[in-house]
């Protein structure tokens, strides 16, 4: 039995999700007496995957793969899967992984379950628990093919150490050219993305106007957080669409989600519900968000947030 993970990196640095996917796969492997191989693309420090149970790394170094490209990445990952005869392939649910996995499943003739939140149950087929109806329910999905692809929801499994010293081998399959050309990438590199963030600071229509986002950005800065917003805020052009979270925007599964001046409409809550701890700051104690939150402050954002920033700075200084 052999498992393959796609361990994602950015500018050479392995992502936290890569270690989480490694932790998940090695948990499956230890129950099945199997080995976990990771395929990495232009990543550094790939030995670190051993800490989370990876026994072997197929290390791909190739200038032509510098920019992410669905067609050539699918090519590399499917060749890696064939190289180690992988029966189970695990990816994260980053934007890139979600982009790749469907094509990979066709290429490998594998069944694919996305948004998976728990280890497979194998007493009765191969069932994985996954989110459905945007976090409003779970479904047990039975993957019936010999080869299986699992898309592990970010932050659903966590990191579990299982130290190994991996064998690292260079892997340089022949890569087909891609018909998709990446013209430009526009990415704010000094800010953490919503998908990668441990903490997300989100604000809504209660902030009254785009000119009031300074304190939201400052709060996010203090916490090392990503900023997000409710849908109307992006529809009115107060904030970019990339910040819209919820059922029709980006999903959030951070450790901490702070909602400021957001009422907590069902579509908003669905998309952020996978976050572990939720805090709401709202003037209206009847706002539905209070039913979904762990901690709440009934109060005016324009008074509470500046105080919170100050107190957090003090806390950070004392705990540095």
């Amino acid at each position: 039995m052999s498992l393959l993970i796609y361990a994602e990196s950015e500018n050479g640095k392995l992502k936290k999700m890569a270690y989480e996917v490694a932790s998940y796969a090695s948990s499956i492997a230890s129950n099945m007496n199997a080995e976990v191989t990771a395929v990495t693309i232009n990543a550094e420090d790939v030995e670190s995957l051993g800490q989370y149970g990876v026994g072997k790394v197929l290390n791909v170094k190739n200038e032509s793969l510098k920019a992410f490209n669905e067609e050539s990445y699918v090519d590399v990952i499917s060749k890696a899967a064939n190289e180690v005869n992988a029966e189970i392939i695990v990816l994260s649910q980053s934007a890139n992984a979600k982009y790749l996995a469907p094509a990979l499943s066709v290429e490998l003739e594998a069944g694919y379950a996305s948004n998976v939140v728990a280890l497979p149950e194998t007493e009765n087929g191969f069932q994985v628990k996954r989110n459905v109806f945007t976090n409003k329910a779970f479904g047990m999905a039975d993957i019936t093919t010999d080869k299986k692809i699992i898309g592990l929801s970010n932050n659903a499994f966590g990191l579990h150490e299982n130290s190994k010293t991996p064998e690292v081998v260079d892997f340089s399959p022949e890569i087909k050219g891609s018909g998709i050309e990446v013209k430009s990438v526009d990415k704010n590199t000094d800010k953490v993305s919503i998908a990668d963030a441990e903490v997300v600071v989100s604000a809504g229509r209660g902030l009254k106007g785009p000119e009031n986002w300074g304190m939201i950005e400052e709060l996010a800065d203090v916490l090392g957080a990503a900023t997000a917003c409710s849908k109307p805020v992006s529809d009115m052009g107060w904030r970019p669409h990339g910040e819209h979270v919820g059922q029709t925007g980006k999903p959030v599964a951070s450790n901490l989600y702070i909602a400021i001046g957001i009422s907590g409409a069902i579509q908003h809550l669905a998309g952020i519900n996978a976050s572990k701890t939720k805090v709401v700051i709202n003037t209206d104690e009847e706002a539905p968000f209070f039913k979904a939150a762990d901690y709440g402050i009934v109060g005016d954002a324009f008074e509470v947030v500046p105080q919170l920033i100050e107190k957090l700075k003090e806390f950070k200084a004392a705990n540095a």
Partner: peptide, 29 residues
């Protein structure tokens, strides 16, 4: 078909929110 839903469930109900006084941000932290 390659993947089939066998059953569905709903998340466990959430506990009540803990309210913190707006004057007591230290408590939230």
């Amino acid at each position: 078909t390659k993947v089939e839903f066998k059953s569905f469930s709903k998340p466990a109900p959430k506990g009540d929110v803990k309210l913190v006084d707006a004057e007591n941000i230290d408590e939230l932290i």
